[in-house]
Nucleic acid binder design. Structure first.
Length: 570
RNA sequence: GGCGCGGUAGCUCAGUUGGUUAGAGCGAUCGACUCAUAAUCGAUAGGUCGGGAGUUCAAGUCUCCCCCACGCCA
């Protein structure tokens, strides 16, 4: 029994996420959380929406709503979809919470006290019509280099030369199109990450068991070019955490907010406070403060590769730099990208399958199984409808679902809807126990190492053992000469259904809950002794035949969906 | 152009610190079985491990060069 803190990278509030976003952090994090809970560990699994920044403001404006209303509404949408996928967050928070506001301001003050924040003066374009500063890509104009008329503030798409927005000729706002712009001097705060470079470097070096993807990205940012750079942590926006030194104002920073990447990871901590304030827990500090009981917590973060720099460098700078006893991450599991049918999933272009659409066409378990057993761990992987159909039909319908079906229906027709009596196990049954024990041990090893593809393969291997056994002992033949022996074989097989439901539930929770309910099993404890677990349902124990646990995806459906999702959304 | 992850059977991928005849799943072919969601089980075929050179008694596994795909950055 250990204590595990698990966080998934927090999805941006703007719009519904696609399957690539889901498989890159939330879903594997959920798998791990469910597994550890099933093993009897104490788990706190947190996620939230990342709500600040310009994209949220623009999306709200487009929807004709105040930004806070828009975010509240979208939080509700995302929370509902997360529930649909059975993501078992202990709390799904919001980075715009008061708790996060206070904590972000607290960290800013402490970091400033530690000398890790410096002020920088910059010149930025201010738009009178929009009433705001225009960061790089919100401004366009004529390229001073090649004369291209639609050059963006940060780069000219025509000559590729990198630009500074103030150099553009005839600049205009991409928001309103206004040309009523003015260069203004403005001050910003920078986090002195470069000061922490050696400390971070040593810390990353000590993490020899982390995925290469995680450490190689961190190392690149630490050593590439001039090394780790300081980063601006403030913006001239309305929507965000107001820049303050704790409770005190920050002279010269009036009207500015912290930049999203600074306050977003702090939400991991704030989320636990929201969890307490929502009445779901009573002590957040024992998860986050090493001086208040978090010493024995193992903290694991899940994220896509694009988030690695923030979690290996920026957020650790905040934590380590504060010199306060905050819990630092122990393990960072990062993922590559999932591609869609020969290209990328794209939120902006609406390409691919989005979370709400996925749930409209099939239950969560179908998606969970395929996505997890094909999770992009070692390299980018690809979603194709063909592969999805094949994986679901073969693994779920044929191997697992059909096993439950053949066993329960055979028992009902030859015996009754109760675990049959008689017979004595022999050598073949001992072999089965040994095989199952080994396969499940292998599965557990992979789950503990968060080797998800391998864990899925082992789990499937355990399912196959049941079919192999049945095929070999052939109770449909045995029953003709020795009904008692057939009863023993089926009794074992019925118990295997229960066992499979228990160990598979981290992957496919709904189907497993159904199977357990059909088996009328009140014991869903994780098996430590397989032989004992296969006696959990004694002779005479009643059950019901499950409905089709997993249905097959037909060729017509596959073609239909392939067609339907080929274009773009909206 | 720089950097990163890859390039292993038709497809998707495993291959630990270099060491016996390179593995799995799917697909294909053949066979067995008939309890079951036309499901299951078994067998077989198929790879000069992107190319070249080198180190070594021994290289998919280390070194160098090159090629290809994808991604990130400037």
């Amino acid at each position: 029994m250990a204590r595990h803190l698990i966080t998934s990278a927090i999805p941006y509030i703007n719009g519904i996420k696609h399957l690539g976003n889901l498989v890159g952090s939330q879903l594997p994090a959920d798998l791990y959380a469910r597994y550890l809970r099933a093993r009897g560990h104490e788990v706190l699994f947190l996620c939230a929406t990342d709500e600040h920044g310009t994209p949220a403001e623009l999306a709200a404006a487009k929807a004709g709503k105040p930004v806070d209303d828009y975010c509240a509404e979208m939080w509700g949408v995302q929370a509902k979809i997360a529930e649909g996928f059975r993501l078992s967050f202990d709390h799904f928070g919001r980075s715009s919470s008061d708790q996060n506001k206070k904590l972000t301001q607290h960290f800013a003050k402490v970091l400033d006290d530690e000398g890790l924040i410096r002020e920088v003066s910059e010149t930025q374009m201010y738009s009178h019509a929009d009433g705001r500063y225009l960061p790089d890509r919100y401004i366009e104009g004529t390229c001073p280099n090649c004369g291209f008329e639609d050059a963006r503030g940060d780069q000219c798409d025509n000559c590729t030369k990198q630009l500074d927005p103030v150099d553009l000729i005839n600049p205009r706002s991409t928001i309103s199109g206004s040309t009523d712009l003015e260069m203004r001097d403005t001050k910003h705060l920078y986090l002195r990450q470069s000061e922490m470079k050696d400390k971070l470097d040593a810390w990353i070096d000590s993490k020899t068991d982390w995925p290469v993807l995680t450490t190689s990205i961190a190392k690149k940012w630490l050593h590439d070019g001039d090394g780790l750079q300081d980063r601006g942590i403030t913006r001239d926006l309305d929507w965000g955490v107001p820049v303050q030194k704790g409770d005190e104002p920050w002279p010269g920073m009036e009207g500015k907010v912290f930049y999203v990447w600074f306050d977003a990871p702090i939400e991991y901590i704030a989320c636990s406070q929201e969890w307490v304030d929502a009445g779901k827990g009573d002590d957040w500090a024992r998860w986050w403060r090493t001086d208040k009981g978090a010493d024995d917590v193992r903290y694991t973060q899940f994220m896509g590769k694009d988030n690695v720099p923030f979690h290996t460098l920026s957020f650790p700078t905040t934590i380590l730099g504060s010199n306060e006893p905050w819990k630092l991450v122990d393990y960072i599991k990062s993922f590559n990208y999932l591609n869609y049918d020969g290209g990328q999933f794209s939120t902006s272009r609406g390409r691919g399958v989005f979370m709400d659409q996925a749930l409209e066409i099939l239950p969560a378990d179908y998606w969970r199984w395929w996505l997890l057993s094909n999770v992009p761990e070692s390299s980018d992987s690809e979603f194709t409808w063909d592969s999805f159909q094949q994986g679901v039909n073969k693994d779920l319908a044929d191997v697992l679902g059909n096993f439950a079906s053949r066993v329960t229906k055979f028992c009902r027709s030859k015996f009754s809807e109760a675990v049959p009596e008689g017979g004595t196990p022999g050598a073949r049954e001992e072999q089965l126990m040994a095989d199952l024990t080994a396969k499940i041990a292998e599965y557990q090893t992979h789950m503990e190492a968060i080797e998800i593809r391998k864990a899925a393969a082992s789990l499937r291997g355990a399912w196959v053992l049941g079919n192999e056994y049945l095929q070999e002992v052939a109770p449909w033949s045995t029953i003709k000469e020795d009904p008692a022996q057939a009863a023993m074989q089926i009794r074992l097989a019925l118990n295997m259904i229960r066992l499979y439901a228990v160990i598979s539930s981290p992957f496919i929770p709904d189907a497993c809950a159904d199977l357990l309910s059909c088996m009328k099993a009140d014991d869903a404890e994780w098996p430590t002794d397989i032989a004992a677990a296969l006696k959990a349902m004694p002779e005479g124990h009643a059950f019901t035949v499950p409905d089709v646990t997993f249905r097959k995806i037909t060729d017509a459906e596959r073609e239909d969906w392939q067609e339907r999702f080929a274009g773009t959304r909206d």
